[in-house]
Amino acid sequence: MTTGVRRRMGVEERRQQLIDVALRLFSDRPPEDVSIDDIATAAGISRPLVYHYFPGKYSLYEAAVRRAADELSARFHVPHEGPFSLRLLLVMGRYFDFAEEHAPGFSALLRGGSVRSEAVVEEVRQVAYEQLLAHLELTDPGPRMALVIRTWVGVAETTALSWLADRSIPRRELERQLVHDLLALAAVTAAFDEETAGVLRRVVDQEPPDGPFAELVTRLLTLVPGRAGDG
Protein backbone atom coordinates (compact mmCIF):
# COMPACT_ATOMS: atom_id res chain seq x y z
CA MET A 1 0.00 0.00 0.00
CA THR A 2 1.36 3.42 -0.94
CA THR A 3 1.25 6.26 1.56
CA GLY A 4 1.46 9.10 -0.97
CA VAL A 5 4.44 10.58 0.89
CA ARG A 6 7.26 11.69 -1.38
CA ARG A 7 10.81 10.73 -0.52
CA ARG A 8 12.77 13.83 0.39
CA MET A 9 15.86 14.35 -1.74
CA GLY A 10 19.23 15.08 -0.23
CA VAL A 11 21.02 18.33 -1.05
CA GLU A 12 23.32 16.91 -3.73
CA GLU A 13 20.59 14.75 -5.24
CA ARG A 14 18.33 17.80 -5.57
CA ARG A 15 21.12 19.84 -7.13
CA GLN A 16 21.74 17.13 -9.69
CA GLN A 17 18.01 16.93 -10.44
CA LEU A 18 17.91 20.67 -11.11
CA ILE A 19 20.96 20.41 -13.34
CA ASP A 20 19.28 17.60 -15.30
CA VAL A 21 16.18 19.74 -15.75
CA ALA A 22 18.26 22.75 -16.73
CA LEU A 23 20.14 20.76 -19.38
CA ARG A 24 16.87 19.73 -20.99
CA LEU A 25 15.44 23.25 -20.98
CA PHE A 26 18.61 25.04 -22.05
CA SER A 27 19.23 22.61 -24.91
CA ASP A 28 16.01 23.82 -26.55
CA ARG A 29 16.07 27.50 -25.57
CA PRO A 30 18.74 30.08 -24.73
CA PRO A 31 19.07 31.02 -21.03
CA GLU A 32 17.25 34.34 -21.46
CA ASP A 33 14.14 32.47 -22.65
CA VAL A 34 14.04 30.12 -19.65
CA SER A 35 12.64 31.40 -16.37
CA ILE A 36 13.05 30.16 -12.82
CA ASP A 37 9.34 29.33 -12.93
CA ASP A 38 9.99 27.09 -15.97
CA ILE A 39 12.74 25.30 -14.07
CA ALA A 40 10.64 24.93 -10.92
CA THR A 41 7.67 23.57 -12.87
CA ALA A 42 9.80 21.07 -14.78
CA ALA A 43 11.42 19.91 -11.54
CA GLY A 44 8.11 19.71 -9.69
CA ILE A 45 9.23 22.04 -6.90
CA SER A 46 8.55 25.59 -5.78
CA ARG A 47 10.32 28.67 -7.10
CA PRO A 48 11.86 29.50 -3.68
CA LEU A 49 13.31 26.00 -3.48
CA VAL A 50 15.18 26.53 -6.76
CA TYR A 51 16.72 29.67 -5.25
CA HIS A 52 17.67 27.67 -2.17
CA TYR A 53 20.08 25.63 -4.32
CA PHE A 54 21.11 28.20 -6.93
CA PRO A 55 21.15 32.00 -6.62
CA GLY A 56 19.72 32.43 -10.11
CA LYS A 57 19.10 30.76 -13.44
CA TYR A 58 22.49 31.75 -14.85
CA SER A 59 24.34 30.08 -12.00
CA LEU A 60 22.25 26.97 -12.65
CA TYR A 61 22.94 27.24 -16.37
CA GLU A 62 26.67 27.48 -15.75
CA ALA A 63 26.59 24.49 -13.38
CA ALA A 64 24.77 22.48 -16.04
CA VAL A 65 27.22 23.49 -18.75
CA ARG A 66 30.17 22.68 -16.48
CA ARG A 67 28.91 19.18 -15.81
CA ALA A 68 28.35 18.53 -19.50
CA ALA A 69 31.82 19.89 -20.28
CA ASP A 70 33.56 17.69 -17.71
CA GLU A 71 31.81 14.57 -18.98
CA LEU A 72 32.52 15.38 -22.62
CA SER A 73 36.18 16.20 -21.97
CA ALA A 74 36.66 12.75 -20.45
CA ARG A 75 35.61 11.14 -23.74
CA PHE A 76 38.83 12.30 -25.43
CA HIS A 77 41.03 10.27 -23.08
CA VAL A 78 41.82 6.87 -24.62
CA PRO A 79 44.93 4.65 -24.33
CA HIS A 80 47.88 5.57 -26.54
CA GLU A 81 47.96 2.14 -28.14
CA GLY A 82 47.67 1.04 -31.76
CA PRO A 83 47.47 3.06 -34.99
CA PHE A 84 46.43 6.69 -34.67
CA SER A 85 43.38 6.33 -36.95
CA LEU A 86 41.94 3.51 -34.84
CA ARG A 87 42.48 5.53 -31.66
CA LEU A 88 40.72 8.48 -33.27
CA LEU A 89 37.88 6.22 -34.36
CA LEU A 90 37.53 5.07 -30.75
CA VAL A 91 37.42 8.70 -29.59
CA MET A 92 34.71 9.47 -32.15
CA GLY A 93 32.65 6.55 -30.88
CA ARG A 94 32.92 7.87 -27.32
CA TYR A 95 32.18 11.41 -28.50
CA PHE A 96 29.00 10.37 -30.31
CA ASP A 97 28.04 8.15 -27.37
CA PHE A 98 28.01 11.27 -25.21
CA ALA A 99 26.13 13.31 -27.81
CA GLU A 100 23.47 10.60 -28.11
CA GLU A 101 23.16 9.66 -24.43
CA HIS A 102 23.27 13.25 -23.20
CA ALA A 103 21.79 15.16 -26.12
CA PRO A 104 20.42 18.01 -23.95
CA GLY A 105 23.76 18.48 -22.23
CA PHE A 106 25.69 18.33 -25.49
CA SER A 107 23.40 20.84 -27.19
CA ALA A 108 23.31 23.18 -24.21
CA LEU A 109 27.08 23.10 -23.91
CA LEU A 110 27.79 23.96 -27.53
CA ARG A 111 24.93 26.43 -27.83
CA GLY A 112 26.71 28.77 -25.40
CA GLY A 113 24.75 31.65 -23.94
CA SER A 114 27.06 33.55 -21.60
CA VAL A 115 30.66 34.65 -21.37
CA ARG A 116 31.35 32.01 -18.71
CA SER A 117 29.73 29.20 -20.67
CA GLU A 118 31.69 30.16 -23.77
CA ALA A 119 34.84 29.90 -21.67
CA VAL A 120 33.80 26.39 -20.60
CA VAL A 121 33.25 25.39 -24.23
CA GLU A 122 36.73 26.65 -25.06
CA GLU A 123 38.11 24.48 -22.26
CA VAL A 124 36.56 21.39 -23.87
CA ARG A 125 38.01 22.35 -27.25
CA GLN A 126 41.40 22.81 -25.64
CA VAL A 127 41.20 19.36 -24.05
CA ALA A 128 40.38 17.84 -27.45
CA TYR A 129 43.23 19.78 -29.05
CA GLU A 130 45.77 18.73 -26.42
CA GLN A 131 44.71 15.09 -26.53
CA LEU A 132 45.14 14.99 -30.31
CA LEU A 133 48.58 16.55 -29.97
CA ALA A 134 49.50 13.89 -27.41
CA HIS A 135 48.34 11.08 -29.70
CA LEU A 136 50.34 12.61 -32.54
CA GLU A 137 53.36 12.94 -30.22
CA LEU A 138 53.53 16.70 -30.72
CA THR A 139 54.33 19.19 -27.98
CA ASP A 140 54.79 22.47 -29.83
CA PRO A 141 53.13 22.32 -33.27
CA GLY A 142 53.66 25.02 -35.85
CA PRO A 143 50.79 27.30 -36.83
CA ARG A 144 49.64 25.23 -39.81
CA MET A 145 49.58 21.94 -37.92
CA ALA A 146 47.80 23.60 -35.00
CA LEU A 147 45.22 25.05 -37.40
CA VAL A 148 44.53 21.60 -38.85
CA ILE A 149 43.70 20.20 -35.42
CA ARG A 150 41.62 23.15 -34.22
CA THR A 151 39.69 23.22 -37.49
CA TRP A 152 38.95 19.51 -37.19
CA VAL A 153 37.67 19.92 -33.61
CA GLY A 154 35.17 22.46 -34.95
CA VAL A 155 34.14 20.10 -37.74
CA ALA A 156 33.51 17.32 -35.20
CA GLU A 157 31.28 19.62 -33.12
CA THR A 158 29.23 20.74 -36.10
CA THR A 159 28.88 17.20 -37.42
CA ALA A 160 27.61 15.84 -34.09
CA LEU A 161 25.12 18.69 -33.63
CA SER A 162 23.82 18.25 -37.18
CA TRP A 163 23.47 14.52 -36.65
CA LEU A 164 21.41 15.04 -33.49
CA ALA A 165 19.03 17.27 -35.46
CA ASP A 166 18.81 15.02 -38.53
CA ARG A 167 19.95 11.41 -38.24
CA SER A 168 19.63 10.64 -41.94
CA ILE A 169 23.30 9.59 -42.13
CA PRO A 170 24.18 6.52 -40.04
CA ARG A 171 26.19 7.47 -36.99
CA ARG A 172 28.98 4.95 -37.59
CA GLU A 173 29.52 6.34 -41.08
CA LEU A 174 29.92 9.84 -39.66
CA GLU A 175 32.40 8.66 -37.04
CA ARG A 176 34.54 7.14 -39.77
CA GLN A 177 34.07 10.18 -42.00
CA LEU A 178 35.44 12.42 -39.25
CA VAL A 179 38.57 10.28 -39.09
CA HIS A 180 38.87 10.70 -42.85
CA ASP A 181 38.27 14.45 -42.49
CA LEU A 182 41.32 14.86 -40.27
CA LEU A 183 43.49 12.98 -42.75
CA ALA A 184 42.15 15.09 -45.61
CA LEU A 185 42.81 18.35 -43.76
CA ALA A 186 46.31 17.20 -42.88
CA ALA A 187 47.02 16.04 -46.44
CA VAL A 188 46.07 19.40 -47.96
CA THR A 189 48.20 21.25 -45.41
CA ALA A 190 51.09 18.80 -45.86
CA ALA A 191 51.40 19.92 -49.47
CA PHE A 192 52.49 23.33 -48.17
CA ASP A 193 53.99 22.59 -44.75
CA GLU A 194 56.89 20.24 -44.08
CA GLU A 195 56.04 19.73 -40.41
CA THR A 196 52.55 18.51 -41.25
CA ALA A 197 53.99 16.36 -44.04
CA GLY A 198 56.36 14.71 -41.57
CA VAL A 199 53.56 14.01 -39.09
CA LEU A 200 51.37 12.60 -41.85
CA ARG A 201 54.12 10.29 -43.13
CA ARG A 202 54.75 8.96 -39.64
CA VAL A 203 51.06 8.34 -38.98
CA VAL A 204 50.44 6.68 -42.35
CA ASP A 205 53.50 4.43 -41.90
CA GLN A 206 51.86 2.99 -38.78
CA GLU A 207 48.49 2.37 -40.42
CA PRO A 208 47.19 -1.15 -41.08
CA PRO A 209 46.38 -2.01 -44.73
CA ASP A 210 42.66 -2.13 -43.92
CA GLY A 211 42.58 0.91 -41.63
CA PRO A 212 40.49 4.08 -42.07
CA PHE A 213 43.32 6.07 -43.65
CA ALA A 214 44.11 3.34 -46.17
CA GLU A 215 40.42 3.14 -47.01
CA LEU A 216 40.28 6.87 -47.75
CA VAL A 217 43.37 6.78 -49.96
CA THR A 218 41.93 3.86 -51.93
CA ARG A 219 38.63 5.67 -52.44
CA LEU A 220 40.33 8.89 -53.52
CA LEU A 221 42.51 7.08 -56.04
CA THR A 222 39.39 5.80 -57.81
CA LEU A 223 38.52 9.44 -58.53
CA VAL A 224 41.81 10.07 -60.34
CA PRO A 225 41.55 9.42 -64.11
CA GLY A 226 43.53 6.36 -65.11
CA ARG A 227 43.98 5.13 -61.53
CA ALA A 228 40.68 3.31 -60.98
CA GLY A 229 41.32 -0.38 -60.56
CA ASP A 230 45.12 0.04 -60.26
CA GLY A 231 46.78 -2.39 -57.89
Rank of each mutant, 00 (worst) to 15 (best):
L72T: 03
S73A: 15
A74V: 06
A74P: 03
A74T: 04
F76G: 01
F76Y: 12
H77E: 13
H77I: 12
P79V: 09
H80R: 13
S85W: 03
L86W: 07
R87L: 02
L88G: 04
M92V: 01
M92P: 02
G93L: 01
G93F: 00
R94Y: 12
Y95L: 03
Y95I: 03
Y95D: 01
F96D: 00
D97A: 03
F98A: 08
E100C: 13
E101C: 10
H102E: 15
A103F: 04
P104V: 09
G105E: 04
F106E: 15
F106K: 13
A108C: 13
A108E: 06
L110N: 15
L110E: 07
R111L: 09
G113K: 11
G113D: 13
S114E: 09
S114G: 10
S114W: 03
V115N: 06
V115E: 14
R116C: 00
R116H: 09
R116E: 14
S117P: 02
E118Q: 12
E118I: 09
E118W: 11
E118F: 08
V121M: 11
E122W: 05
E122S: 09
E123K: 06
V124H: 11
V124A: 12
V124T: 14
V124N: 10
R125Y: 09
R125M: 08
Q126E: 15
Y129S: 00
Q131H: 11
L132I: 15
L133K: 14
A134T: 13
A134Q: 12
H135D: 09
H135F: 03
L136G: 04
L136T: 11
L136Q: 08
E137G: 02
L138E: 10
L138S: 05
T139D: 14
P141D: 08
G142D: 10
P143W: 09
R144K: 10
R144T: 11
R144F: 07
M145Q: 12
L147E: 11
I149K: 01
R150P: 04
T151D: 15
T151W: 11
V153M: 07
G154N: 15
A156G: 09
E157T: 13
T159W: 00
T159K: 06
S162T: 03
W163A: 02
A165R: 15
R167V: 01
R167D: 10
R167Y: 01
S168G: 13
S168P: 03
L174M: 14
L174V: 06
R176E: 00
R176L: 01
Q177G: 01
V179A: 05
H180I: 07
H180N: 06
H180E: 13
H180C: 05
D181I: 02
L182Y: 04
L182W: 08
A184W: 08
A184F: 09
A184G: 07
L185Y: 14
L185A: 11
A186Y: 02
A186C: 04
A187I: 05
A187Y: 12
